[in-house]
């Protein structure tokens, strides 16, 4: 798959897809989207980059091992529910705050932290599988 057109467009496509995956992640609470589908989009972005430019540039670009990213996601998911302890409500209860930043009201919640955790778990797990398969192809 090392055609010139694909190699030239892949980095832009990857950047665009990563951006879009974050958009999908953030709109997820009340509209279609969320951590799982966002993670899948981000993982396919990295897979495309890997197909076009090889696996080692991807590994360099994401800096951490994909499994470590997954682990961090799991960590976020597990602690997201613990904020309920301080609010005096049962585990995993969604807690919301509405700060105003530059005149825009932001809706932030512990659910979002959990969703970011899901995003990272999916991103890490799928990327790890995809990169392993792409590496095999080169043998």
């Amino acid at each position: 798959m090392r055609t010139l057109i694909f190699r030239a467009t892949a980095p832009y496509l990857t950047a665009l897809m990563l951006l879009y995956s974050i958009f999908v992640l953030l709109r997820g609470h009340n509209e279609p989207g969320g951590g799982f589908i966002g993670g899948l989009i981000a993982a396919s972005a990295l897979a495309i980059y890997g197909i076009a430019c090889g696996v080692s540039p991807v590994r360099r670009a994401i800096r951490y091992h994909p499994m470590a990213i997954s682990g961090f996601g799991l960590f976020l998911g597990a602690i997201a529910g613990m904020f309920s302890l301080f609010a005096g409500v049962p585990y995993m209860t969604g807690l919301w705050i509405y700060p105003t930043v530059f005149g825009v009201e932001l809706k932030l919640s512990t659910t979002l932290i959990f969703d970011i955790g899901v995003y990272l778990v999916v991103l890490g797990a799928i990327t790890s599988i995809a990169l392993a398969l792409e590496e095999k192809e080169r043998d």
Binding site: A68, S70, G71, F72, L74, F75, G77, A78, M82
Partner: peptide, 12 residues
């Protein structure tokens, strides 16, 4: 919670 947090730390 503890099981998942420590599994995540071990994974990292």
């Amino acid at each position: 919670v503890i099981g998942f947090i420590f599994a995540a730390l071990c994974l990292m």
